[in-house]
Design a protein around this nucleic acid. Structure first.
Lengths: 232, 232
DNA sequence: TTCCCCTGTTGATAATTGTCAAGACTTCAA
DNA sequence: TTGAAGTCTTGACAATTATCAACAGGGGAA
């Protein structure tokens, strides 16, 4: 594995506190690979052989049932995915698919579990990461169960606005079709939802979004830190 | 704290592998309390002062937004709840309310975090527990996003059937109004959903459920281990 | 350029789900 | 027993969301 990737991974909070020798042990069996867009990296139901780290590009986590498919999360650099499956040595619950050309590090799951058993710092870092993931999914669950699709879209836009710096005008980082899937609605419905938000101070031009009336828009969306704050 | 409660907690996988002295340290600040039904034990948004352990009775985890409320999980003995908030020292994402008269142990969160930092076995047990919780929520998310309310109910009934031993006839352990909330639908809709499942081999008499045509019912429900299996 | 493919949009319609109001049926206590 | 409060069910209706079909517009490739 090239040194640069090594360092990027080492700097992740998940790996930054562990002993040097244990990190080396992890990296010994790991390798980095470049994947083109639209490649299925893992398939739900398969045994979890590797912990994945997205170094560049982006990866969509999706699940399918009975002919339907939904997008559950998008992983962007630099972060890991399917940590829980790796730790539990259980099958993947989601499939992972590159959205664009991506550089991915693969760390053998059995090495992760072995180091996890002997390195307390690593174990604690894993806990922090998992607790974070758990709380994120709980928030997503609340978003889905407590809000209509219009409200979900409005709050998503406010979150995206904050992520991109807070300006009134910003750009979506999703293809609309995938955004619809993330928000739990159809593409057609998303298109109508964008229109439905215009009376509350929203302008849409392709992927460029402008909130023309922030106060009015927030009055409709009613963002809530216990659902919409990414950090806690 | 009475010895019996002490032992019940010690036997939880979360606490069973930790050092005696650390467990004692945890228990020193802990106490057990009896609560009547319908008492709000914690409120979402509050700081997480205690890790809770349900020793008897049952507790509903709910969340509210904009005048709506939804039930996210039910905790039954013997298990803990709001572990993630305790570990992260972050606000509760859900409120907890007793469903019936319940005996609850409260362990100060700061003690949990302190022991977590010095006891590797405990840290690893926490990881296992959190990974389990995380995967459960992911499954719930898939259930919600990929299935209609009729399908969710059908698969819930199959899960409940398995939990209660697998007989064709079994009893619901939820009040129907709460079941509706858990399944993400209204009580009225649940009532109609029960009727809608009758053509597929279901009989309902109050809280007693009978699956009269298991094959046909499963053909409709299409249960999937990656959504419906509780263990993995 | 022209064609093709893809994304996104729109309209018409259907299916699903929620809301409101009313009534049936328990349960429990006076 | 009676009444009161609760859950559950039902019907009528409205809102939300999905489905299907069609079409506009924007790249790319030949």
């Amino acid at each position: 594995m090239p040194d640069s990737s090594f360092k990027e991974i080492r700097d992740l909070t998940l790996f930054s506190q562990m002993a040097d020798e244990n990190f080396s042990a992890l990296m010994r069996g790991a390798y980095v690979q470049n994947f083109p867009a639209q490649i299925e990296l893992i398939t739900e139901g398969d045994p979890s052989d590797f912990l994945h780290v997205v170094l560049s590009g982006s990866v969509d986590l999706v699940s399918a049932w009975n002919g339907r498919e939904t997008s559950l999360a998008t992983v962007r650099p630099i972060s890991t995915f399917i940590l829980a499956a790796t730790i539990k040595d259980a099958p993947y619950l989601m499939s992972a698919r590159t959205l664009e050309k991506s550089r991915i590090a693969l760390i053998p799951s059995q090495d992760v579990r072995a180091v996890f058993d002997i390195d307390g710092n690593f174990a604690r870092a894993v806990v922090t990461e998992l607790a974070q993931c758990y709380r994120s999914v709980i928030k997503a669950q609340k978003d889905l169960k407590l809000r209509t699709s219009l409200e979900r879209l409005a709050n998503y836009l406010l979150r995206q606005q904050r992520r991109t710096g807070g300006a009134a005008s910003f750009v979506l980082d999703y293809e609309k079709r995938r955004l619809a899937s993330v928000l739990g609605m159809t593409a057609e419905n998303l298109s109508r939802a964008f229109k439905g938000l215009q009376p509350y101070g929203l302008e849409v031009d392709g992927t460029r979004i402008t909130i023309t009336n922030q106060a009015e828009f927030e009055r409709f969306a009613r963002p809530n830190p216990l659902i919409d704050d990414g950090s806690t």
